[in-house]
Design a protein around this nucleic acid. Structure first.
Length: 283
DNA sequence: GCCCAGGAGTGTG
DNA sequence: CACACTCATGGG
């Protein structure tokens, strides 16, 4: 049963939020709409006279909360922007990113997705996630499938996963699948950011960067600051900062505090826009 | 063909 | 701590 409803989530820019690399399952449609998967639901989002128009299939009782939570409707964007406006480097470009929301993905889907994301570009990551979902995820509607559950994926052979184009990531994700369970996930949800991070880094195929992405987009820790090649370049260019991951991480923590996650996204999108890496930012 | 990618693991100095 | 090397492969 298709559900339709409206939400008041402002400010919100769907292109910035869904289009360039936080999450990999959204596709742009007509008139600025986006279609994607949240957990076990197919969702279409579009802006309609000041509100967010939502369509959900197959639809479930708490669909409105599902979408609100995913887009972090409760984040105080004004406060975050005010905090980051004190940074002389970030201040001039801040308003442009007001509608960018950090998403809150399912924890396992985020972890699995970012293990696949290592040393690949966004088009390829999108393709890998599509392939494992279509092959091993529960069917939602039409040809759309949820991200596969870990217990299911753990039973798939490594060679099968390699055939889907995962390369060396196939072994990592299988090992992590076998380790996943609700007890661990529950413990991590209530852990401190530093403890969560340590546990994540201990997983095979998870290093500093993936652990920070999963902390941020999966477990909702806004103090997390993932450093990939784009951020590394930007920190040199904007702040003259370079060095090891842990050194750059400390710099970000002291400079951006509990808004580090949003600062990271602003810097990431700005850096990619400069080089024309993301079509939605070129306008 | 070339270069790069939301890197991680391992070994060495 | 810093490097150096390997891993596997598609996209631009």
């Amino acid at each position: 049963m298709l559900m339709r409803f409206g939400l008041d989530i402002a400010p919100l820019d769907l292109d910035l939020t869904l289009g360039c690399g936080q999450t990999f399952r959204w596709r742009p449609g007509e008139r600025g709409s986006w279609t994607g998967v949240i957990d076990d639901q197919l969702v279409r989002l579009s802006a309609a006279n000041g509100r967010l128009a939502v369509e959900v299939l197959p639809g479930r009782r708490d669909a409105d909360e599902l979408v609100s939570c995913y887009l972090r409707a409760d984040d105080d964007i004004d406060r975050i922007q005010a905090v980051l406006a004190k940074d002389r480097v970030l201040a001039p470009g801040l308003k442009r990113f007001r509608g960018l929301r950090i998403v809150k993905m399912d924890e396992w889907e985020c972890l699995g997705s970012y293990i696949l994301a290592t040393y690949a570009n966004i088009p390829r990551i999108t393709k890998m996630i599509e392939a494992v979902s279509n092959s091993f995820g529960d069917r939602i509607a039409g040809g759309i499938h949820a991200f596969p559950r870990p217990d299911h994926l753990a039973r798939v052979s490594a060679s099968h996963l390699r055939r889907l184009g995962l390369g060396y990531r196939a072994d990592y994700i299988r090992e992590v699948c076998a380790y996943m369970d609700e007890e661990w996930l529950g413990r991590m949800r209530s852990a401190s950011y530093e403890d969560l991070r340590k546990e994540l880094v201990a997983l095979p195929g998870v290093g500093d960067k993936v652990a920070d992405c999963v902390s941020l987009f999966g477990f909702g820790r806004l103090e997390s600051f993932p450093i990939d090649v784009w951020i590394e370049r930007a920190l040199v260019r904007l702040y003259g900062q370079k060095g090891s991951y842990s050194r750059l991480r400390r710099f970000a923590a002291s400079r951006f505090g509990d808004c580090a996650g949003y600062a990271q996204e602003y810097i990431y999108h700005n850096e990619r826009a400069r080089s024309g890496a993301c079509a939605f930012l070129r306008k």
